[in-house]
Design a protein around this nucleic acid. Sequence first.
DNA 1: CAGTGGTCTAGACCACCAA
DNA 2: TGGTGGTCTAGACCACTGA
Lengths: 232, 232
Amino acid sequence: MRKHEELRLALLTEIRALPEHAPLPTERDIAAVHRVSRNTVRLALDALETSGDVYRIQGAGTFVASRVVSKSATLTSFSQDMEARGLRPGSRLLAADTVTADERLAEQLGLAVEDPVVRVSRLRLADDAPMCLENVHLPASLVPGLVQRDLSGSLYRLLLDEYGLEVHRAEQSVTAVELDQTRAMLLGMPRHAAALEVERVGLDQRDRPVEMTTTTYRADRYEVRFTVRRRR
Amino acid sequence: MRKHEELRLALLTEIRALPEHAPLPTERDIAAVHRVSRNTVRLALDALETSGDVYRIQGAGTFVASRVVSKSATLTSFSQDMEARGLRPGSRLLAADTVTADERLAEQLGLAVEDPVVRVSRLRLADDAPMCLENVHLPASLVPGLVQRDLSGSLYRLLLDEYGLEVHRAEQSVTAVELDQTRAMLLGMPRHAAALEVERVGLDQRDRPVEMTTTTYRADRYEVRFTVRRRR
DNA sequence: CAGTGGTCTAGACCACCAA
DNA sequence: TGGTGGTCTAGACCACTGA
């Protein structure tokens, strides 16, 4: 375990015992107590600042952040997302087949139009009730034989274990749509009901697009949360 | 100007002239050429990595990131947001008055229920056509006399210049809603049309809530974009 | 196995805040 | 004005990549 990561976790438990806006020890004190250099302390505090757990005022100190607000969203699977919301995740496979890339898919995945693309379509459940419709598209060349596999469990686990694919960062775009008849029925909503549509392009560690996913959420059950910061 | 910031800008122009996935010089080379320490180079590269301009592979190098995907959203005003999208921003004041905090407002702004809150309600235009309805709420104690001021221009400029209030980070929550008759009319949309609703709590440098804003966007004209990353 | 990014150290000075 | 976080240096070793 890296020292700054270990220190980060140690500080996090200290922080949890403190009230909002309480001052942390000075960087020099933390360095002395934990027997590390001040740079290492700063690495740990940088991470805690990014995650929204502390804030810093030059010349004054480092303080415990407000807790009223939700924490910043990170890259999670549907299952993790639901569990974080206190719901039991479930899944029903609707389709798993190979299609050809249209213009948009080709551009986003760095393919040529008509290149083969594997599509996995699933209805996702939370506490046994429909939560969203998920349409995953992957370049067929990256996932040979995927459609024959067991797709009832975690797709991301499968992609990592069997194909070595890992989404390292994703660009998301959120819009509001009206449900068509098919989607409304699958989600158990009235036709024309408003829904939240999230389009996501996932990139691996080498910044190569490996998936494009469109997810349509029931507006009455789901909201997207995230943090924005001023560039310093 | 801090050295790592200067270096960041210099590297950014170098990057713009390179193709995707092209390798940057090594950290040690950059340090030597720009006569700075390697730590300073790393600070600059950290920022470029966060902004999605480069990616790094341990043992291999630092590379120019993919450009197909949109860049991460930062904290911007409506005007900046529209200009970034190539649209001309406009505004029409609907209401500016003092109301009392309901339970939700009080909790989010750290006030007591019934505390006075200033509300500024505006219809926002892009290229002269309605884009969204914006409802800003501010603790009245922070902005005495605001309702009498000229609210046709930039509210954030006014808050900064006159009251020293600056939003440093914001927690956003995005949902899909159906428009009621009033909102539909104001936005020039059919009733029950789907719309994107963004609720935002803005915090200042000291992590104190200073505003809560609810914005209702026309779904046919607007989408919310942001980046998510895996925790390393 | 040579070279890369990742981590860590021990120091120094600066900009800023609060008393 | 003393103490804080912010910046910067010059070095060292480690973990990993790719030829």
